[in-house]
């Protein structure tokens, strides 16, 4: 056995080049120094303790790490923490109000849209970002939109139903009214 250091000393990552980022996370401004190669998902999880954002493949395929950056769904494993500087991030932790689940979360619970729950934050944030776009996607459109987040437990059917019901319960947007008129 090779004991490289008798005493590990400081575990701060002194040797790493760092940068300072200022980012709005779930409405609160955060400033911190991060290693330049830390990705955004690790920043949220390890520096801010927002462990609801999960990491599943680190290559932008599985979608577990999906968060909303400036209104768009983003795979946070493909983004560096530095790239969050000056931007607004929304994570799954923002969806409930106090102890009360939001309507999308309620729809997931009512429809059995989660089992192990590991993919759930990614799906919730994908659907939340989809709602920002306005409109009422039909089932097929929902299937296509969430195809970037994998789920190995549910077979997706209840997830699609939950998202569909969530959209059905949203107030009509101005854009939709515009479309309805023309």
């Amino acid at each position: 056995m090779t004991a490289v250091h008798d005493s590990p000393g400081s575990l701060d990552q002194d040797a790493e080049p760092t940068a300072v980022v200022t980012v709005s996370v779930n409405g609160a401004e955060v400033t911190g120094r991060v290693p330049v190669r830390m990705h955004a998902a690790d920043f949220l999880r390890q520096r801010l303790g927002l462990t609801g954002t999960h990491v599943g493949c680190e290559q932008g395929v599985c979608g577990m790490c999906t968060v909303i950056v400036d209104g768009e769904a983003v795979k946070s494993c493909l983004m560096l923490a530095c790239q969050l500087d000056g931007r607004a991030v929304r994570t799954v932790e923002s969806l409930a109000e106090g102890d009360r689940l939001g309507p999308l979360q309620e729809a997931f619970a009512a429809r059995g849209a989660l089992q192990c729950g590991f993919c759930t934050p990614g799906l919730l944030m994908t659907a939340t970002a989809l709602a920002y776009q306005g409109g009422r996607p039909d089932r097929e459109a929902v299937r296509e939109e969430i195809a970037g987040v994998l789920c190995r437990c549910t077979g997706y059917e209840p997830i699609v139903t939950a998202i569909e019901e969530y959209f059905a319960g949203l107030p009509e947007t101005g854009e939709e009214e515009e479309n309805a008129r023309t």
Binding site: G49, L50, T51, G52, L95, L101, G117, T120, P121
Partner: peptide, 17 residues
Amino acid sequence: EDHRLLRGDGAFTDDVQ
């Protein structure tokens, strides 16, 4: 199980820090 998992409040092993 749902409430904690829907809020991102599960305790998966990587969440142990």
